[in-house]
């Protein structure tokens, strides 16, 4: 009888344990496996990820697909810090000098709840100033020929 009860209890614990593991996997599986893939700190030459990498975590032409961020030195810290609050798109669509990026961090710390960055700040600033620097476009840029999709417009002939 006692044996039966302990057997029952053990099974209950086992089932519970499995459920807990499954729950954790559902919650964090993708993320954790994603993070584990980062075991090597990315260097300036982007690493092509293997087939086992989830599609969103792949790097193509130096761009991390999930976030759209340049995959280079400082990527992990920039991703972890910036996307805690907002989309990575807010980073990738902006351009600024190191000083300009510093001002944005200061503004986010003063008004948006960004925490003190400590020794990570220079890493973040180096990354942003290197990969998201302004281009000289003068008083107005040309229409971007790369963006124009040429098509035949059907009109009546005269």
């Amino acid at each position: 009888m006692k044996n039966n009860i302990s057997l029952l209890l053990t099974s209950v614990y086992l089932v519970f344990g499995i459920c807990l593991l499954a729950f954790c996997y559902v919650l964090f599986g993708n993320v954790v496996s994603g993070w584990f893939d980062f075991s090597s700190v990315p260097s300036k030459t982007a690493i092509q990820r293997t087939k086992t990498t989830p599609k969103s975590e792949q790097v193509v032409d130096g761009i991390h697909l999930e976030t759209g961020l340049v995959y280079a030195e400082g990527f992990d810290i920039v991703r972890g810090t910036c996307t805690a609050c907002h989309s990575a798109k807010l980073v990738t669509q902006n351009r600024a000098s190191r000083e300009g990026w510093k001002q944005m961090l200061t503004w986010m710390q003063a008004t948006q709840g960004l925490w003190e960055l400590g020794e990570q700040e220079p890493i973040i600033l180096d990354y942003l100033a290197t990969h998201y620097a302004p281009e000289a476009i003068g008083r107005r840029a040309n229409i971007d020929m790369k963006e124009v999709e040429w098509y035949i417009l059907n009109l009546e002939e005269e």
């Binding site: 994603g34 993070w35 805690a84 609050c85 925490w115 960055l117």
Partner: peptide, 22 residues
């Protein structure tokens, strides 16, 4: 675990803040 380092100043993360990945 993933970063192989502690999230520096993690205790300054506002109480309700979650990394978007999660």
């Amino acid at each position: 675990i993933a970063l192989g380092t502690k999230v520096v100043f993690a205790n300054y993360l506002p109480a309700d803040m979650l990394p978007i990945a999660l």
